[in-house]
Design a protein around this nucleic acid. Structure first.
Lengths: 194, 194
DNA sequence: ATTTTATATTAGACCAGTCGTCTATAAAAA
DNA sequence: TTTTTATAGACGACTGGTCTAATATAAAAT
């Protein structure tokens, strides 16, 4: 197995464990064992557990950004429809996972924001990038008259992201897709109603 | 120190640590040390770390319910004003804590929902009780015409709670009160606008 | 082709920290 | 005095992340 292959495998397994158990409760050993990589090898591939986690975060963010762009930049649909489709797709995805895990980055944010400044800063950056994509889309929606011109799209984008993260949190706690459905209906039928 | 005094002190310190570091990353020992109680005493008062955490949760929920009721049942104000005042007060509280920690129960929910069913069930119950209080208040707001009769107050209450939790999560990540302000302005000027 | 050098990879020790148990002791109440 | 309540902290068994020393593989040089 080449170096990159092994490293990528570790990142993938790590992401799974981080989503399921959080950072503090995930052990290096179990990740190694699950990947089939011997214990001693970890520090050949990564400088520390912290760096490992940080790389996982970066990796996950990249992947997600692609999904986001796939939806929000699809010019065959109207801006607001694109946003709705994106969240609808996410709803299905999370529901199909039995409402567990939720958003890796949201989870890590809540777990580590007060504990590790490197994580906090990286996550802040990533969320800001998501927010920017929402803003872009909402601005276009406003331009074509899909949402009221009186609304401040920056605030709206902010609110949208925050509320979505909150819905995911409650989805986990209630083990039910209802919070996501609630998000969809209020966000699109009340907040962003045409 | 009487039994209740010591036990209460442990619960109080425990709550502080749980808020700051989460469940998995908080050690019994540090709680004991910070409270000035020897190790041997812990297992006299609590059966296990899990039970300790569960009691902290219950305790915190009780306290919070009282605050909630203080605001939402204050009949000198209109229903919607009561709700707004409640969240405004919470905003100030969190901001004055340098935007750290956030909501203990929300944090624990995200950390433990997939890991410990006892915690999840207890938290689910508590959140449901909060939701019921919101529903009550929103129903009254609807009765006096403060919000549109077309809105489903159950869904609205749900959304309100979820979005608030999301705002708290992002407050932590960004170390800024902006997410809370965003919540206030969108929730009360757009979603619940008279 | 064989030896030397450099790089890639791993094994296992290490120590600090975890929760929970245990026995012994002190304080208070009956 | 006897019994209950509470304190005291050592101890065990285990897991955590990390590091050094050793091995395996590849590249270069003789």
């Amino acid at each position: 197995m080449g170096k990159d292959t092994t490293k990528l495998a570790l990142l993938k397994t790590g992401a799974r464990f981080l989503k399921e158990k959080g950072y503090n409760h995930t052990g290096i050993q179990e990740v190694l064992q699950a990947t089939g990589v011997p214990k001693g090898s970890f520090y050949y591939y990564f400088k520390s557990k912290e760096d490992f986690g940080l790389e996982i975060v970066k990796h996950d963010a990249c992947e997600h950004n692609q999904v986001l762009d796939k939806y929000l930049k699809d010019e065959t649909l109207s801006p607001l429809t694109r946003l709705r489709q994106y969240f609808a797709a996410k709803c299905e995805e999370f529901a199909s996972l039995q409402c567990r895990e939720g958003c890796l980055l949201g989870n890590l944010g809540q777990e580590l924001a007060d504990q590790n400044e490197r994580f906090r800063l990286r996550l802040e950056e990533i969320f800001a990038a998501w927010r920017d994509r929402y803003i872009d889309c909402l601005q276009q929606a406003q331009a074509v008259g899909e949402i009221s011109p009186d609304l401040d799209v920056r605030i709206l984008a902010d609110f949208c992201l925050n509320s979505w993260e909150g819905a995911l949190q409650q989805m986990k706690v209630t083990k039910s897709p209802v919070p996501l459905q609630t998000f969809m209906s209020v966000m699109f039928d009340v907040v962003l109603k045409p």
